[in-house]
Design a protein around this nucleic acid. Sequence first.
DNA 1: TTGTAAGCGTTATCAA
DNA 2: TTGATAACGCTTACAA
Lengths: 337, 337
Amino acid sequence: MTDSRHEKPRRPTLQDVADRVGTSKMTISRYLRDPRLVAEATQAQIAAVMAELGYIPSRVPDMLANAKSRAIGVLLPSLSNQVFASVVRGIERVTQPAGYHCLYAHYGYDMEREERQIEQLLSFHVDALILSETVHSARTLRMLEVAAIPLVEIMETPDSPLDLAVGLDHAAAAQAMVDAMLARGKRHIAYLAARMDRRTLLRADGYRQAMIKAGLTPLIVQTDAPSDFTLGGTLLREARRQLPQLDGVFCTNDDIAAGALLAAQAAGLHVPGELAVAGCNALDIGQALTPRLASIVTPREAIGELAARLLLRRLAGETVTPAVHDLGFAIDTGGSI
Amino acid sequence: MTDSRHEKPRRPTLQDVADRVGTSKMTISRYLRDPRLVAEATQAQIAAVMAELGYIPSRVPDMLANAKSRAIGVLLPSLSNQVFASVVRGIERVTQPAGYHCLYAHYGYDMEREERQIEQLLSFHVDALILSETVHSARTLRMLEVAAIPLVEIMETPDSPLDLAVGLDHAAAAQAMVDAMLARGKRHIAYLAARMDRRTLLRADGYRQAMIKAGLTPLIVQTDAPSDFTLGGTLLREARRQLPQLDGVFCTNDDIAAGALLAAQAAGLHVPGELAVAGCNALDIGQALTPRLASIVTPREAIGELAARLLLRRLAGETVTPAVHDLGFAIDTGGSI
DNA sequence: TTGTAAGCGTTATCAA
DNA sequence: TTGATAACGCTTACAA
């Protein structure tokens, strides 16, 4: 960095550019919107001064004047979740070409933290919000009502969405996977759960229904700890302790499932012969395992893309129906069940 | 009362609150800063009206008036990288209690995308920036110079930082790991690289030096594709094709390493007997493998924490020295080398 | 083609 | 303890 820090470090404004060009800031403003709006002779001068000063536009005045930021707030449960990396890819495929900037916030599956993050994003006057939950605090609901901006709740298919929703039926997906395991003759299947967020609970419902429908007793082994690979091994050991004849585990996600599969193999169990293992989300790790991990294939990128598309239509003033979109799922039986 | 006859619902401002309380907006502003600054009788009234209207503060006017947002921009190479999840944890441990909000942007290890994202964050008037690269485009450098805000470049230890830097010596870390593999008698070690970002290249340097120092010929198997687990298997197969007597792979990260280890075992190779495998970052996946994955332990959370701490000191007007902090690394030999 | 004035929501400053 | 005023940077509406 150079001497520019000697004087009061104020970044250049339109007025600064105008002063050097010897015109008014309106001319510069026009030039920025469309260079052809100003005289040709002036265009070159403005361009030169802009480059010289390194002018950076500010969207703050526009936020103030029009309560518009051309930014979309995106709430993610966690920044390290592969699942949401795909969702974000889908979102940006739509928002970027439309000239919208995404502001990301994460809340660690915590409702109060979600509330604070939403407040922050609203204080930046985001034009719309994408939420990764369907349950919110009372104060969050109030803020969203007052802000009156378009919203999409993603991942699930709530009965009464705040505004719009794009997701899939996690209970049905879980049930389908457990059914597939049962169809292969497994009888003593446990559900390995972590973090106990809402979608983990929805999958627990699906698991429970499938087991009960088959006349079997559900066994849920759970922890509040966040998911990781080693936790899969820990939960598997606990499940075997509680149910020695265990012959299958349906896991709330692929990290837990991969950890369980690796731990089972390390303990000398044959997968799927002695133990079937299934996960959720069909992440890459499942493809690197031998046998390949059975998993629920979720349309994450499509969810992000549709959510963003619906939001842009709402921002353009369109009425969007239906409010809730179910993008479905598929079952990849891999080689582990 | 606000005249709401001809305007569509607008979110309440301080003036709206003031009108209902029957006072001026300055009183409300004071109440928000510290309730004791207003008469006790008024406090209760204000609280009631605030709750009724669901007032949401706006930081936009303050951004405009003081060019201060109390927000710190954080540039992440990718949103799905576990490594940066730890870094972010370290950052927020410091920024949250200090009342700063973090705005995250990601650029997929792409310099031009970094440029656009920095421009966006600057247009929101972030008070400081955390960058995850040490090499930037000319226009980025210009914008950062003009913005004249505190900066930290994290992860590496650049010779001439833009402002501040907190990281570690990736070449030295790679060299140490390869030395450990050589010390265990391995001679035909390849480096498996992906995405070819700067830190991958720095580790390649360290690998190359260790091999040459040992009088051995380096073999780098690389791809521009982003890392994932299956890619580790692909790169391993290519390395064995090029070097049939291969007896070790040092991988640019743990995803590649885990994939290579799993593929080796699937091919019937004994790890580490027939093939040593080492990664970088000591992520949880390595602990779930059998044998446990050898890896470079990087102080990610500490990097984030120190970066944020230095930034806050700069924002408080302090002069911070030294400019560059090397937080070191450790070698976990696990059971795979 | 270019310029002027007003206004967006908040806080610092000064006045009462 | 409270209020009036100005200022921040830009765009819209209107004027020249």
